[in-house]
Simulated assay, not measured.
Amino acid sequence: MTGAAVHRHDAAVHRHGAAAGAASERAVPPGGARPPCSPVLLGEPRVRVPHVPDHPSCFGCGPSPGLGLRVVEEDERGVLAELSLGRVHQGAPGIAHGGIVAAVLDEATSLAVWRALNRPNVTGRLEVQFLAPVPLEEPLRVRASCTAVAGRKAYATADLHVGGVDGPVAASAAAVYIAVPATHFDRHATAAGPHDPRTCQDGP
């Protein structure tokens, strides 16, 4: 990494908080990126999302045996969510599998971007920094925020806390999401068959 790139990366970490410590240069908003501004605040209707409530079978935020991520607070930039992982999520004894931890952070940052921008998106890049083991059967909280937008790309960060939001951070993430047309999800939902609730829903 060049000296200029190091300077840009350090500035981004300072600007976006602890979660940005997980970010490489590719996951840091470029110069000229703008803060997110939700069209919902301007009166636009909420778009359909591939999550709860529009998609109750979502592995990330749907019911067991998925992750069971539950949004408990939200604002114009992101979400605060809760969950507790069980034996089905285990890697080493008593500890959540690293891939499951990454899935939690992917789901949380995705929800933050949809909340902030009210548009269909897919994960383009997810970088995770594992800081401590994530215990099973203990309350976990994830705070995720959409930090910037540049064209079709949206940038987000998240911290996974053990216990409350003041508890230690066990993992953090920096993510990049790419805007896609709603038909991207409709096409796959139709292929999934009539049991996917989005195939039976009219309008946004």
Rank of each mutant, 00 (worst) to 15 (best):
Tyr155Leu: 01
Ser110Thr: 10
His89Leu: 11
Val47Ile: 08
Ala22Glu: 01
Pro65Ser: 15
His161Lys: 15
Pro63Gln: 13
Arg198Ser: 08
Ala173Trp: 02
Pro36Arg: 06
Pro120Leu: 09
Val28Ser: 13
Ile100Leu: 10
Ala179Thr: 11
Cys58Ile: 08
Gly164Cys: 11
Cys58Gln: 12
Gln201Asp: 09
Asn121Tyr: 02
Gln129Trp: 10
Arg187Ser: 09
Thr190Glu: 14
Arg87Tyr: 02
Arg198Pro: 04
Glu138Cys: 02
Gly21Ala: 08
Pro139Leu: 10
Gly21Val: 00
Cys146Gly: 04
Arg8Cys: 03
Lys153Ala: 12
Gly167Pro: 09
Pro135Ala: 15
Gly68Leu: 08
Gly66Ala: 12
Ala23Val: 06
Pro30Phe: 10
Gly124Val: 14
Gly62Phe: 10
Asp54Leu: 10
Glu44Ile: 03
Ala179Ser: 12
Phe130Ile: 12
Tyr155Trp: 06
Thr2Gly: 15
Pro135Asp: 15
Ser145Leu: 13
Val72Leu: 02
Val113Glu: 03
Gln129Met: 15
Cys61Gly: 07
Ala92Leu: 14
Cys61Phe: 05
Val149Cys: 05
Ala103Arg: 05
Val49Ser: 14
His9Leu: 12
Ser24Pro: 02
Leu42Thr: 09
Phe130Glu: 09
Glu25Cys: 05
Gly31Lys: 05
Pro30Ala: 11
Val47Gly: 14
Ala158Tyr: 12
Gly62Ile: 11
Pro197Trp: 13
Ala11Met: 07
Arg15Tyr: 08
Pro45Lys: 00
Gly91Glu: 15
Val28Glu: 08
Val101Gly: 01
Ala192Val: 06
Arg8Gly: 03
Ser38Cys: 11
Tyr177Cys: 08
Arg141Gly: 07
Ala144Thr: 08
Gly31Ile: 04
His16Val: 03
Glu73Gly: 04
Gly99Lys: 12
Asn121Val: 13
Tyr155Thr: 10
Asp202Gly: 14
Ala20Asn: 09
Glu44Ala: 15
Leu85Ser: 05
Ala12Ile: 04
Ala191Glu: 10
Ala96Lys: 00
Ala148His: 02
Ala96Phe: 00
Gly167Asn: 15
Cys146Glu: 00
Arg187Val: 09
Gly193Cys: 07
Ala144Lys: 00
Ala33Lys: 03
Val149Glu: 06
